[in-house]
């Protein structure tokens, strides 16, 4: 019997969990941050740049929540604005140009719900990422390390491989939001968390992720070393698949097919 789903939600949101930048610092060497979307601004909620994975140059992109109160405010609590998604896309296109694999770390309650975010096209920014990532010619691996909040998380997760930490969650809506809409009662979030099937095991069962990363050594050197090894092996495998982009299309194409009925006419 696994833990109740809502306990996973609390763990996924735990302030003491490693954040995106922790993964970048401990897994890669020589990280150089590259700022800005070249359109409007630089979103501190998304960090991106170039780094080495062992010997291999890669592009790394991470949603960053921050640790201290000051950091969390600066990072907008990991809720990206359109500029963040556009910066991510710019860096992915740059990676494609130079043949670098792309690795994303995702941890967000969702894309930011703000007036400015709407004015600057939050929906359009996410849509463009989904469209362009689906056809990116370099390998893409996305790792959900904490909260995977809906479209704001998916906008960095149209990848060849999607992995989740054991206690990360991935959901179309927050359990509180779901409970509030369906049952007019945010207190029914526990029931909603159960119903939404948002745990890593659920996501794997539905074919939405390939791998669950254990949290036994969370935050310790051996934890990051294990992820580094897995990333290197996986990128090596993806680099030897000439049909990679086609396979990425098929990966998403088949999701939900068995959830519909087509009556014969």
């Amino acid at each position: 019997m696994s833990d109740p789903a809502y306990k996973r939600v609390r763990l996924a949101r735990d302030k003491d969990r490693p954040t995106g930048l922790d993964y970048i610092r401990h897994i890669f060497d020589g990280f150089m941050e590259l700022h800005g979307d070249r359109r409007y601004g630089d979103d501190p909620a998304i960090v991106g740049g170039i780094a080495r994975l062992g010997e291999l140059p890669v592009t790394v992109i991470a949603i960053e929540k921050g640790h201290t109160a000051k950091e969390r405010t600066f990072r907008n609590f990991g809720a990206p604005n359109p500029e963040g998604y556009r910066k991510a896309l710019r860096l992915m296109k740059q990676a494609e140009k130079f043949g670098r694999p792309v690795i994303c770390f995702i941890d967000t309650s969702g894309a930011y719900c703000g007036i400015g975010a709407e004015e600057r096209g939050q929906g359009q920014a996410i849509a463009e990422n989904l469209m362009e990532m689906s056809a990116l010619r370099v390998p893409v691996i996305s790792v959900l390390i904490g909260e995977g909040g809906s479209g704001g998380a998916l906008a960095l997760a149209v990848a060849d491989r999607v992995w989740m930490l054991q206690n990360a969650v991935y959901s179309v809506i927050s359990p509180e939001g779901c409970a509030s809409i369906l049952w007019k009662d945010a207190a029914k979030a526990e029931k909603a968390a159960e119903s939404l099937r948002l745990t890593a095991e659920d996501a794997q069962r539905f074919g939405i992720i390939e791998r669950i990363l254990p949290e036994k050594d969370l935050g310790r050197p051996e934890f990051y070393a294990a992820i580094r090894t897995l990333l290197s092996e996986e990128i090596n495998e993806l680099n030897h698949d000439p049909e990679r982009t086609e396979h990425r299309y098929e990966r998403f194409r088949r999701i939900g097919v068995s959830a519909v009925t087509k009556e014969s006419l």
């Binding site: 989904l130 809906s150 149209v158 991935y170 179309v172 809506i173 099937r197 990425r248 194409r253 939900g256």
Partner: peptide, 17 residues
């Protein structure tokens, strides 16, 4: 559609592709 959870979310990626 939240009643189909992640499967609904993934339709955004599928249609976009």
């Amino acid at each position: 559609r939240m009643q189909e959870g992640l499967l609904s979310l993934m339709q955004m990626a599928k249609t976009s592709a």
